[in-house]
Write a protein that binds this DNA or RNA. Sequence first.
DNA 1: CTGTTAGCGCATTCAT
DNA 2: ATGAATGCGCTAACAG
Lengths: 340, 340
Amino acid sequence: MSNNDNKVTILDIAKRANVSPSTVSRVLRNSASVAPGKREAVMKAVAELGYRPNIFAQSLASGQSMTIGVLTQNFGSPFYDGILEGILLGLDGSEYWPLFADGRWQTEIELRGLDFLLQRRVDGIILVGGQIPEERLRKVAKEIPVIAVARELKTMPENCIYLKNFEAAYQATQYLLEMGHRDIAHITATVPYLDSVDDILQRLRGYEQALRDAGLEPDPRLIVEGNLQQQSGVLAVEMLLARGRPFSAIFAANDQMAFGARLALYRRGIRVPEDVSLVGFDDESSAAYMVPPLTTVRQPSILMGQEAAKAMLALLNEQSPKLPVFEGELVIRESVARQR
Amino acid sequence: MSNNDNKVTILDIAKRANVSPSTVSRVLRNSASVAPGKREAVMKAVAELGYRPNIFAQSLASGQSMTIGVLTQNFGSPFYDGILEGILLGLDGSEYWPLFADGRWQTEIELRGLDFLLQRRVDGIILVGGQIPEERLRKVAKEIPVIAVARELKTMPENCIYLKNFEAAYQATQYLLEMGHRDIAHITATVPYLDSVDDILQRLRGYEQALRDAGLEPDPRLIVEGNLQQQSGVLAVEMLLARGRPFSAIFAANDQMAFGARLALYRRGIRVPEDVSLVGFDDESSAAYMVPPLTTVRQPSILMGQEAAKAMLALLNEQSPKLPVFEGELVIRESVARQR
DNA sequence: CTGTTAGCGCATTCAT
DNA sequence: ATGAATGCGCTAACAG
């Protein structure tokens, strides 16, 4: 079919430079010392002929693909895209190139994506969230390096970059308590085809624990469930309102649902923060531009992605990086008011 | 180095199935008819040995990489991510896989990305926005199919999927005029290292033309310049306010800047839409969740991405797709009020 | 330091 | 319909 080879091979430049193909290979990948004169001749020939190494031949011969598989969950979602951006940044300048696959929060699709990446012979895999069973991951990790971002793997903790969701949620809830709130609602989430995402569950647990430590028993009527998307935040608030149980604050498990909640409150004429205070999670960039700006927990997605990329490069370089664990920093903005 | 081959080659399954390697290849790629018995034996062996074709060997031998290069501008930005999501969707089910590169709105980086994709021997290239000179693109297009999304290529119009920015901006401005506004500000944009992005420029032109057609001369004091990001919308409004030229409406060249504008107005105690009406562009998902919801021009990013992917697949299949041109639909929400 | 020789795994003639 | 042979372009021993 339509083939895009400029047909210049290592052989052509070998002839042009009056050396052997292997010498060309050597200077190109700097794998052994070559006489300065020949090196120069090779470089010259390369430039003159506009030579471009055929990556498939390279990979076939060397066994390395120079690619890193990135298995994400939700292409187009602010938080995950931030991580991807970070990975891109972290890989910049390296010889590796990312190969993306999207699991769409469905384990089956995710597994297919994993297979695809494996078939593409990626040299390493970065998981962004997701739900692939750890057992499967351990099998993969025997073959190639595996790093998980925004997911805590119980059985392979040394391969994860994540945020302490429980602690961060605890802190956020505690802040609301300190501001005098006693009736604090929580919007948690499940995703389609899946009962719960561990991160989100940890946030719920942190919320509950903070209440208990303040001598309050979590009230099921104050806990509603969305699906991480904005629209579900709208519905969650409407459900909350319908239940008739009064509340003075809402803590949403992510910013997107907090935005939805904000809109629902607006539609009902409920003011933020005068009537109800609102706290989100993730600190995606829109959070600072909500009206009023949203108090939220900062999850440094870009940084996390960068760290993941760096760790992967280290692993590919036979080193053992120590991965950072992130604390969620509470970013206080005007969406929370003191409750008298 | 760390090599991840399960070492099962076409030869192994040839032996196992008592056929020749070429027969195996034939059944695997369905390139010629094979006796049902042998075909079955091959399939069985494949399954039993867990055979996975080596994609590099395939590519090397066939000259096809089965990948499509996607050159984007701003990984992590809502609008472009939407397009990427669409491309992913459109490619789903095909044998092709996307390879992403990010130009970061800098022509130099973009050109490097293009080279990288070419070196990766992609079978086709989808450009998402960007500024690569058309001359260069035409050269590439001689080798492999090229499709541009969200960018109008003057010299190769049959390869573009874009939105009529001028007309859409005209329409949005006209709407504000119909609502009684006469003093309409516009937030346009340039990006770093670049004077202007053509899309954005077209929106400015559409705005100006609508004013003129209504008998109003565009007032330079009502035109401010951001950089497409949210924060620049804040600054733009502050600049506008500082100029002292009254206005009753703002039309921002994208939603992100509209969000920034919204915040700036809020901070100044200027109500939307009672005091100032606001219109954005793109209809990214947050627009509907702004408070109040943002009137904006819908640019169907996901759909555009899907169409691009489909068109690319058609081209790779030696067909000539006719590409759609999108009209921007004005989505009317509460951020605009009638001016008395 | 450098050239020669073998593959890497598969697709594709060319015979049969 | 099928097997044998050749080559894709490059890397990596292996000799010198």
